[in-house]
Design a binder for these strands. Structure first.
Lengths: 382, 382
DNA sequence: GTGAAAGCGCTAACAT
DNA sequence: ATGTTAGCGCTTTCAC
C-alpha cells in the first residue's frame, strides 16, 4: 500500500522521482520487462517493448544513474587533469591549447556517453580519491610526478601521452612532434632562414623533450649551429623575455651574438605566448617580421591570425587528439582490453605572412593547412 | 564461504576491491561499526574506532562512491555550463574569464568535496540528462535559453546569476556591474576623458544589459552623449572590428564622427579581446594611447599587463565569484534550504598606463587594485 | 516471451 | 557501545 520509504535513507528530493517499478506497475508489466524494453536488451515482443517505452515517456521516467552504476560497476565518469603546471594546478585552462583540448575531450566524451570531471594537476593523494572514475586522462604528464603510477596502482586505466607506452592499463595518444618540427624548420629554410633559433619552456614534458631532440637532429643534419633559448616558466612574461634574450643573440653561452657571432634570422617558438606580444618583442630587438626575422609559433592562440603580419602557427590539433583519445578510451572501457595501446596524431602548419619572405613560395599566400604524413599505430580511427 | 559474485553483474575489475565487509571481518567488527568509525558518526569507543581505521588503512580500503551515493541520494557531483556561446557550446574555455571561472569553480568545489563535470551550453535535452547531478551551475545564462527552466522542472538546484532571483530552487551570485561601470567611467573622466565610448557584445546576458544601463545612466548624469558600439559576435575579429568602427566615430548612426561630430577620447571595452590587438586597432585609427585615447577593458587577459603601454582592466574576479557560488551551493545542498538566495561580488579596477593621462592622478603609477564598495545581500561569506 | 528474485556496497533504523 | 538487517534503484540470471 504505502510507497513511502520507511527504512532507507532520507530522500532529500521533496517529490519522489518516478522509478522503474512505478513504470512497471503503471504498464502492468514487471521491472525486468520494462528494463529490457528501455535498454533494448532481452527478447521482447515489439508491442510490449513499445508499451513499456511509451509508459516511461509519459510518466517522465529517468533512470537513476547511481543505481545503474552500482549494478554495472561503471560510472561513465572520466577524470581529466594536466600534468604540467604542478605548482598552479588549475591554470592550464588559461592556455589556449589546453583549453581546447579540455573542451574537446569533454565534448567527445559526452557524445560517447561519458562525463568529464576536472581534476587538479598533482598526485592522487588529493581530495578526489573517492570519485568513481572509470579512467583518468593525464595530459602532458611530467616524469617526476607519480600520478600515473598511483592511478595504475589503484587499477584505474590511464590515458596519457606516449611516455606511458607499454605499461599495462595505460594507453596513449601523442602528437607527431619530430616530423612537425622538421617540417617547420624546413619551411623556414625554404623561405631563406639560415640561422633558425628555437625558444621553448624549460619543461620535462615528453613533447618538449621530443621537440628539442628533433631540433638538434635537424640542425646537425643541416650543418647549422643550435640556438636554443629556454623560458624559465610558462606565461607571457617569461616566454617573451626568453624570446628577447634569444633574439639579442645573448644565448646561454653569453657570447653576445650567438654561437657564430650572428643574430638569428628565424624564430621557432615552442611555448604558448600571445603572438602579438611576441611580434612586439621581436620589434623591440630591432627586427622586422618577416623581413629580418621569420616567425613560426607552436600555438593554438587565435590572435595569431589577427596580427600584422599574421603569425604562422604549428597547430597540435587538440580537437583531434581529444577525439582519438576518447575513442580509444571508450573502446578500452567497453571492450575491456588490458594491453597498452596508442596512436599518433598529425599536426598542421598554418603558414601565414610572418614566415613568408619570398612570395609565392608558400603553398598559399596567407593561411593554408599543410598536413604532414599521418602515422597511425594500432587502433585505427573508428 | 565463497566471495565471488555468483548472481550480480560482471565485475570488470580483475582484482576485486576490498569492501567494507572485508575490513569488518579482518578487524573482527561489524560493517556498521567500521562504517561509523570511518565516517566519524555513531558512538564508538576510541579504541574500536582506531582499530577500524587502522585496519582499513592497512588493507587499502577505499569506499565505493557509487554505493554511498545510492544510499545517501547525493552524488557530490555538480554540472557546470555557460549559457553564452550557445552556437559554439565548448568555446567558453577559450575566454580568459570563463577559463578562470571554470578552474576556480572546480578547485573550490573539490575542496568542499564536490566534483565538477563539464557540460555544453544548451538545453537539458542533451546527452547528459542521465547524470546524477546534485546541482548545476549555469554561468551567464541567456534569457531565451530554457536550460534553467528545464533544470528547475527536473528539481535540480540551479546556481546562476541574478536573473534567476526569486525562483524556488535557484540561487545566484552576481557581479556589481553597475557601480563597476560608473567607477571606471569616473576614472576615465578624472583622467580627462570627455567623450568616452563603450564597445560591448550584442549579448543578452544580464551582465551586459546591466552594463549598458549603467553606461547610459552615467552619460545622462554627466550630460555626455552616448557612444556605444556593438560587436556582432564574440571573438577577436568581431570585437576588434567593433572597436575600429567605434573609434572611427562611425557609430550606428553612421554620421561619420559620432553623435556630436567628435571622435571619442576614451574607450571602455566590455568584451573579451586580446589587449595588444585592441591597442593596435586604436593605433590604426590614428590614436596614441593614452595620449589621444584612454583605454580600459573588462578583461581577465593577462597580456594586458605586458603591452606597451599596459592596459587598464576591470577584473570581474572570477575566482571570488566561483568561491562565493560554491560556498553557497554547499550550504544549500548540505543544509537543504529551498528559498532563493544570492550575493553580490565586487569588481576590481587595475589602473595601468593606458588610462592615465595625468601622472599622479591615478592611485599608483602602474598597477594597483582599487576595490569599489562591497555590497552583500544575504548569505555573508562563511 | 515474461516475471521473480538476488544482490551490487553502503548507511542508518532498530534491536541488543 | 556494538551488531543485525533492510533497502537505496537498478540489471541480470534463471525458472517458468
Amino acid at each position: 500500500m504505502s510507497d513511502v520509504p520507511r527504512h532507507g535513507g532520507a530522500a532529500p528530493q521533496p517529490a519522489p522521482r518516478v522509478r522503474l517499478v512505478d513504470v512497471a506497475r503503471e504498464a502492468g508489466l514487471s521491472k525486468t520487462t520494462v528494463s529490457a524494453a528501455l535498454n533494448g536488451t532481452g527478447r521482447l515482443s515489439p508491442e510490449v517493448r513499445e508499451k513499456a517505452r511509451e509508459t516511461a515517456r509519459v510518466m517522465g521516467y529517468r533512470p537513476n544513474a547511481t543505481a545503474r552504476q552500482l549494478r554495472t560497476g561503471r560510472a561513465r565518469l572520466i577524470g581529466y587533469m594536466v600534468g604540467e603546471f604542478a605548482d598552479t594546478p588549475w591554470s592550464f585552462l588559461e592556455s589556449p591549447y589546453f583549453a581546447r583540448l579540455t573542451g574537446a575531450t569533454a565534448a567527445t566524451a559526452l557524445q560517447r556517453g561519458y562525463a568529464v570531471v576536472l581534476l587538479p594537476a598533482g598526485s592522487l593523494q588529493g581530495e578526489w580519491a573517492g570519485l568513481p572514475l572509470d579512467a583518468v586522462v593525464v595530459a602532458d604528464p611530467v616524469p617526476d610526478d607519480h600520478v600515473v603510477d598511483d592511478l595504475l596502482a589503484a587499477r584505474i586505466p590511464v590515458f596519457s601521452d606516449r611516455s606511458v607506452e607499454g605499461r599495462p592499463g595505460a594507453y596513449w595518444v601523442d602528437v607527431e612532434a619530430g616530423p612537425a618540427v622538421c617540417r617547420t624548420l624546413d619551411h623556414l629554410r625554404e623561405q631563406g632562414a639560415r640561422r633558425p633559433a628555437m625558444v621553448m619552456p624549460d619543461s620535462t614534458t615528453r613533447f618538449h623533450r621530443e621537440v628539442l631532440a628533433a631540433y638538434r637532429g635537424w640542425c646537425t643534419a643541416h650543418g647549422v649551429a643550435e640556438r636554443v633559448g629556454y623560458a624559465a616558466a610558462p606565461g607571457n612574461g617569461p616566454v617573451v623575455r626568453a624570446v628577447e634574450t634569444a633574439l639579442s643573440g645573448d644565448g646561454e653561452a653569453g657570447d653576445g651574438e650567438g654561437p657564430d657571432g650572428l643574430r638569428p634570422d628565424a624564430l621557432f617558438l615552442v611555448a604558448e605566448a600571445s603572438p602579438p606580444l611576441v611580434l612586439e618583442a621581436a620589434r623591440r630587438q630591432g627586427y622586422e617580421v618577416p623581413g629580418d626575422l621569420l616567425l613560426a609559433c607552436v600555438s593554438e592562440d587565435v590572435t595569431a591570425a589577427h596580427t600584422e603580419p599574421p603569425v604562422t602557427t604549428l597547430s597540435l590539433r587538440p580537437e583531434e587528439i581529444a577525439q582519438a583519445g576518447v575513442d580509444m578510451l571508450v573502446a578500452v572501457l567497453e571492450e575491456g582490453r588490458r594491453e597498452s595501446a596508442g596512436m599518433l596524431v598529425p599536426t598542421r602548419l598554418d603558414v601565414r605572412a610572418s614566415s613568408v619572405r619570398r612570395p609565392g613560395t608558400a603553398r598559399t599566400p596567407r593561411t593554408e593547412a599543410w598536413t604532414p604524413q599521418t602515422e597511425w599505430t594500432s587502433l585505427p580511427p573508428t
